[in-house]
């Protein structure tokens, strides 16, 4: 399964990649610290799951979500943010492909649950 990690912090991508590969060995992980490159790769690579940060300079997580909506790209997204703002949580709810809103830091068990949820529920929207 192809998974995108989009976070402007390289270190976060490194850590998340380590966690994910610990949990499952069959994941093909692409990480992007430049959201614009990620946006370009969305249509060519067609990932099945995206971990997305919100607060990024120039192109934000919201920009990517809006881009996907405009292009009708229906890929499930898990938001991984350090912002605990309720406003962000409500705004995320408006994008129907966002199926989980997670506050950083997310550890191994957190990733584990998220992936299990993703595989168990074909209708991923329920675990939001």
């Amino acid at each position: 399964m192809k998974v995108f990690l989009i976070d402007d912090q390289k270190i976060t991508n490194v850590l998340n990649r380590k966690y994910l590969s610990m949990i499952r060995e069959d994941l093909e992980i692409f990480d992007f610290d430049d959201p614009e490159l990620a946006m370009a790769a969305l249509e060519t690579e067609k990932p099945e799951l995206i971990f997305l940060d919100l607060n990024m300079p120039i192109v934000s997580g919201w920009d990517i979500l809006t881009f996907m909506r405009n292009r009708k790209i229906e890929i499930p997204v898990i938001i991984l943010t350090s912002s605990s703002s309720q406003q962000d949580r409500e705004k995320a709810n408006l994008f129907h492909n966002v199926f989980s809103f997670q506050l950083k830091p997310l550890t191994k068990s957190g990733f584990n649950e998220l992936l299990e949820g993703y595989y168990l529920h074909g209708d991923y929207k329920t675990s939001l």
Partner: peptide, 16 residues
């Protein structure tokens, strides 16, 4: 919070 979460993350991953 952003750099702090990274630090927490890296401390947490130690045992894994």
């Amino acid at each position: 919070r952003e750099p702090l979460t990274r630090v927490i993350d890296m401390v947490a991953i130690k045992d894994d």
